[in-house]
Amino acid sequence: MMHVDRYEQIWIRLSVFVLIAFILAVLTASVSAGIQVPGVVQRVDPNTVTEPGSPWAEPGLRELAPGKYEAYILAQIWVFTPDEIRVPAGSEVTFYVTSKDVQHGFKILDTNINMMVIPGQVSKLTARFDEPGTYTMVCHEYCGVGHHTMYGRIVVEPTQAAAE
């Protein structure tokens, strides 16, 4: 073995400790707190993804149960369809996003929703909207000259109980 200075040894041990602590922290956040990154959902053909029978033929919001929704969103240059979604506060929404042309991005500000949208793939994440207000969803991947105009809104409306 080789000689390593005493202070440098301490530093090296500390570095290893810090890195292991980081790994455990993100593991805890993903397992216990359930903060997940996107994974495998399904593959689609971008050329036929808007044809009848595909859920993106008529993209939009569908209610699964009270307070539980799924939102099918189609990304294409340079719009999201739909570009506005309204849900009551306290709703849990699962987003299924795909692209029929180039790569896009999908981020909803002030949430943990942040996904790439890749033709041929379906991006899926779930978020809970407790605070009423307007959330902006933006395309964050360069998709051509109109990229900066590609955005939409999620309007979270106060529930009646909250209004009273």
Partner: peptide, 28 residues
Amino acid sequence: QYTDPGIPTGWKFLHAILTYGVAFPSFI
């Protein structure tokens, strides 16, 4: 590619661990 669809999360996590590994030589 953490935010990419179509890549199993387990593979992403494996790369996360290796990435912490490649931070180590920079600490030294």
